[in-house]
């Protein structure tokens, strides 16, 4: 047993050293949502450490003290059915822990599902992020530009991502800015994020989606608002317009580098919004004008 414990602690030690080189992404937040979650994770690790230590300590105590080799040849272990007090303790303490963690969970879940704290009175930047095999398309309806596989965002501004997919279920994830959410073909899901610190971040599809999944990554760059505006201006002025044919070409399965267009695909291929009971657009790109269309161009208030 001792041999095992030394080995185990050795392994954990090595890992701590390895992991200590730089903080892991999820615990190195650069935005309010990621920070909330990171705090939740630390709280849960601390709480759970109590449980782990209690169990490990009890286990070591029992197996050291009550091993057969340490006892009399004729020691007969007693018959004990149970003890109401002991049993209430082993039920009671876990219940208290779970109640505590439940409160933490519910509060933080509501928090990360809403506009980030401190940004409530701002108009968020709306970005439609849609995935196709194995790319991400980012449409900025207000700015009227679209990018592929890279995302520029202003810092200190609420971001509202509206996610959907042109293929299998994917999951939009920028670990340092916040948790992930699925993008599906059937409906739009909304993810609220914000970046506090300018910098370059890794974003990816986290949900397995076939052959090109591993490389289904996008590049995120957060920059101050004026720089972001300058970039938008520049794209509007220089980038090629996104045509329907071009977009159909982009949807073909495969990998693409980073691309930039003026105009968005939302104009000719509206996202699956509203309770349309499945009578949604087909992928050939019908020009059906449902009410989602107007929503795309003008209404950027929080969805729902």
């Amino acid at each position: 047993m001792k041999r095992k414990l030394t080995l185990l602690s050795l392994v954990i030690g090595i890992l701590a050293v390895l992991a200590g080189c730089e903080p892991v992404m999820v615990l190195d937040p650069k935005g309010p949502q990621a920070e909330t979650i990171s705090n939740v994770i630390w709280i849960s690790i601390a709480t759970m450490a109590i449980v782990v230590i209690a169990v490990f300590a009890l286990l070591v105590y029992v197996i050291v003290k009550y091993r057969a080799s340490k006892q009399d040849e004729d020691y007969e272990p007693p018959h004990i059915e149970g003890n109401p007090i002991v049993e209430s303790i082993i039920v009671g303490i876990p219940i208290i822990i779970i109640i505590f963690l439940s409160i933490v969970t519910v509060r933080s879940t509501y928090e990360v599902e809403a506009t980030p704290k401190g940004y409530e009175d701002q108009k968020p930047l709306v970005v439609y992020a849609s995935s196709s095999d194995w790319k991400w398309h980012f449409s900025y309806p207000e700015e009227n530009i679209e990018t592929v596989n890279y995302l520029y965002i202003p810092t200190d501004r609420a971001l509202e991502f509206r996610l959907y997919s042109y293929g299998p279920i994917t999951s939009f994830w920028i670990p340092q800015l916040g948790g992930q959410k699925y993008a599906m073909s059937d409906m739009i899901t909304t993810l609220h994020l914000a970046a506090d610190v300018p910098g370059e971040y890794m974003g990816r599809n986290a949900n397995f989606s076939g052959k090109g999944f591993a490389e289904n990554i996008f590049h995120v760059e957060a920059m101050p608002a004026d720089e972001f505006d300058k970039w938008v201006e520049e794209v509007r002025a220089t980038a090629e317009p996104l045509t329907e044919d071009k977009f159909a070409e982009l949807l073909e399965p495969g990998h693409l580098g980073q691309m930039t267009f003026s105009g968005t695909h939302l104009e000719f291929l509206p996202p699956p919004e509203g309770h349309n009971h499945g009578t949604k657009h087909s992928h050939e790109g019908e020009h059906d004008t449902d009410d989602a269309h107007g929503d795309v161009d003008t209404d950027h208030s929080a969805h729902k």
Binding site: T36, I37, I41, T105, A206, F208
Partner: peptide
């Protein structure tokens, strides 16, 4: 770790 994964907000980071 199962309890940690069970916490919805944190699971947004652990999932997948």
């Amino acid at each position: 770790t199962g309890v940690m994964l069970g916490m919805a907000s944190a699971d947004y980071q652990y999932h997948n």
